[in-house]
């Protein structure tokens, strides 16, 4: 049996995934109890659970894709472990590729040597673990400062609303800008016709669904409007690939020359 997919590796995966699930359940229960004490309705809390679960389906499938891509070289278990704890789509691919390059190999070739496998596991781990050192040190301090700013601005409700919205928009703007004029390291998903068309579809679909919820008083649909708009935009990307001529849909800012 391939050592990368041995019972031992599955046992490690079970421990790591068990840890993540238990921690998540612990924080959910703690927050739920605090929420009830604060007077947040059960319906709001339930809506949060359901809409967050629905929201996570498509990105989770995308993460699963990375697991499958990495599996050709690393076996299925190590990428599964890495992307269940702290992992990130981009980090894991770059880290493993860097280590394999040093050893004269690449992600397209399966690892056969346990030493190579161990080396990749070390680089993936050490590359991404720094945040777990920073968070316990700085989270409380940052949180205390944010609390002070919020308390101050709560006195001026308009300022609080505007700054809160500006912070959200600041984050979203980075991704919108990348869809308009971003270039990826591997050239897959560069900004161009397809990324902009998908972005516009998502915006319009979200507008229309929000409008539908408001006009027809479909409050139960409200939490699903955003994930639904996302799925519609993903569907549009598939449709456009089928119906738009190649020279148009393949257009990106980087391949027009």
């Amino acid at each position: 049996m391939d050592f990368k997919e041995s019972g031992f590796m599955y046992a490690i995966a079970a421990c790591v995934i068990g840890f993540v699930v238990i921690e998540s359940v612990y924080f959910i229960v703690k927050a739920w109890r605090a929420g009830r004490k604060l007077g947040i309705s059960k319906e709001t809390l339930k809506n949060t659970v359901v809409s967050s679960a629905v929201f996570s389906i498509a990105p989770a499938l995308s993460i699963l894709t990375t697991v499958i891509v990495l599996a050709s070289a690393l076996g299925i278990v190590l990428p599964w472990i890495r992307l269940s704890v702290i992992g990130n789509l981009a980090y894991e691919t770059v880290a493993s590729e860097s280590m394999l390059e040093v050893m004269g190999s690449s992600l397209s070739t399966p690892i056969t040597e346990p030493k190579q496998f161990g080396a990749v596991a070390w680089v993936m781990t050490l590359g991404t673990s720094f945040a777990l050192v920073l968070v316990p040190i700085f989270c409380k301090g940052i949180h205390r400062r944010v609390g002070k700013v919020v308390n101050k601005s709560e006195k001026n409700s308009k300022m609080a609303d505007v700054l809160s919205a500006a912070a959200f928009i600041g984050i979203i703007a980075a991704f919108i800008a990348r869809a308009i004029y971003g270039k990826t390291a591997d050239g897959v998903g560069d900004a161009g016709f397809m990324s902009i068309a998908t972005l516009i579809t998502a915006v319009i679909a979200s507008f229309l669904l929000e409008l539908l919820c408001e006009k027809c008083r479909l409050q139960k649909l409200q939490p699903f409007a955003m994930p639904l708009a996302m799925f519609l935009a993903m569907g549009m990307a598939v449709l456009l690939t089928q119906v738009v001529p190649e020279q148009i849909r393949a257009f990106t800012w980087w391949n027009q020359m």
């Binding site: 919205a165 990324s195 990307a237 598939v238 456009l240």
Partner: peptide
């Protein structure tokens, strides 16, 4: 495959729409 390639524009376009509508000056 394109659905997964363009998942981020789909995700953030849908998420950003509400803010663009309510706070277009800030956006």
């Amino acid at each position: 495959s394109p659905a997964f390639t363009y998942i981020l524009p789909a995700l953030f376009g849908a998420l950003g729409a509400g803010y663009l509508r309510k706070h277009w000056r800030l956006s």
